[in-house]
Design a protein around this nucleic acid. Structure first.
Length: 401
DNA sequence: CTTCCACCGGAAGTACCGGTAA
DNA sequence: TTACCGGTACTTCCGGTGGAAG
């Protein structure tokens, strides 16, 4: 016999009501590849046309795929690869589809080693020269005569960090392969990264180009409505909520990823608040929550010195409202002394401040005060309470606050 | 017009770490 | 074991630079 105040009973009841909100939560995740990609028909056909030669065992063109974040590039490419593999199976040909996210892989070496591992080339985690990896890859591909499509997602991150050496190697690889061949597909959300490429690499890599345009608000609404139909129970989501998600996503350069996350979190908020419907208010709360969660996580996982710099900034802003980089450094230095930590140099702290700005925690503006020098005016760009909460999770910093 | 402040930020170098190959 | 290799975190050095003061 369960009492009404029994905590487990409350949780179970809540779960039962939550089922009334969600039907299939996973559909609302941005990395879910749906069985249909609305408003990407044109892009899908373009990619499919370019890759289709694999069906007859000939090499397709190398491709560059452009588009801002959340325009469906990754999902579309993965979708086409999956369909292609299916078709290959039914006509009796085969290929290796290799997907690497360059930003997640992090370095040239790890990108190459991932490609190698997909070709069953045994490799140590580190320790080899990059050129040695290419050689082993070429040897393996030659001997197996395999056909590959290598997708380099976020290839701009690779190029910006390490130049185009690896891309050059990969575009050149076909000349060295006998029966085997390799099609390269670069995905980038930054159109300007081409400038970093050697013209020869560029012309080889961009034999074809596919551009993914940002979704418009109505298109986003269609996508969201479709996913909502699959993901939420019937009639739970108000049309206004979907419109708001679409509008906020469209404002963020037509970002379907953000819009979907927003809708899912709004659903979770409705669930936890034991509401019957997901309305605009839930979306607004979700928007705020996503921002704050992101900030909290970022601040919490900051390295020690970055957190000290941030704390120094907070402490001086609370006194005078605005901080110059000099004051920030002084304050940081004092904190280090207090905690018995060897402080970093001006130069280093300057880059840390820039990193904090890039992470959206600080706002910096270079101010020139004539005779009184030139400095950065630093201020907080995020709610102080969230930052302080995140900083105070560390016992060392807690003593300094 | 020149000076000069108080810092910016690129380039290159150093130290160290975790790993492999021979 | 020694000699490398790649990566990260940091320092050292130094040539800028916008604009008020002189």
């Amino acid at each position: 016999m369960a009492l009404r105040s029994d905590p487990l009973e409350v949780i179970f009841d809540r779960f039962l009501t939550s089922r009334a909100i969600f039907k299939n939560r996973d559909v609302l995740r941005h990395d879910f590849v749906p069985s249909r990609l609305p408003h990407r028909e044109e892009e899908l056909s373009r990619v499919a046309e370019i890759l289709a030669p694999v069906l007859t065992g000939t090499r397709g063109s190398n491709v560059l795929v452009y588009g801002k974040t959340g325009t469906g590039k990754t999902a579309s490419v993965k979708y086409v690869l999956a369909r292609l593999a299916e078709k290959c199976g039914s006509v009796g040909s085969s290929f290796k589809g290799i997907y690497v996210n360059c930003r997640l892989a992090g370095t040239e070496y790890r990108v190459l080693s991932k490609i190698c591992s997909m070709h069953a080339v045994q490799l140590p985690f580190t320790g080899l020269a990059t050129a040695e990896l290419s050689n082993r890859l070429i040897e393996s591909m030659k001997s197996h005569g395999s056909y590959s499509i290598v997708v380099l997602d976020e290839v701009d991150a690779l190029v910006k960090g390490f130049g185009d050496r690896l891309l050059y190697e990969l575009t050149r690889i076909n000349e060295l392969l006998g029966a085997a061949s390799l099609t390269l597909m670069g995905i980038s959300n930054d159109l300007s990264f081409k400038e970093y490429l050697d013209p020869r690499v560029l012309s080889s890599l961009s034999e074809e180009e596919v551009v993914f345009k940002p979704y418009t608000a109505p298109e986003l609404r269609d996508i969201l409505a479709e996913r909502a139909k699959e993901g939420f129970a019937e009639g739970v989501v108000s049309p206004g909520a979907i419109d708001l998600c679409a509008a906020l996503g469209a404002a963020e350069h037509g970002d379907a990823r953000r819009a979907l996350d927003l809708l899912r979190v709004a659903g979770e908020i409705a669930e936890r608040a034991e509401r019957k419907t997901v309305d605009e208010e839930c979306v607004r709360i979700a928007w705020k929550k996503i921002e704050e969660d992101r900030l909290y996580q970022v601040v919490k996982s900051l390295p020690l010195h970055s957190r000290l710099v941030l704390l120094g900034t907070i402490q001086t802003t609370s006194k005078s409202g605005k901080v110059t980089s000099g004051e920030c450094y002084t304050s940081y230095n004092a904190l280090c002394q207090h905690a018995g930590i060897e402080p970093l140099t001006h130069r280093r702290v300057s880059t840390l401040v820039n990193e904090l700005e890039e992470a959206g925690i600080l706002i910096c503006k270079i101010m020139s005060q004539g005779r009184y020098g030139r400095t950065k005016r630093i201020s907080l760009s995020a709610p102080l309470s969230v930052i302080e909460k995140a900083l105070s999770t560390d016992s060392l910093l807690q003593n300094l606050i």
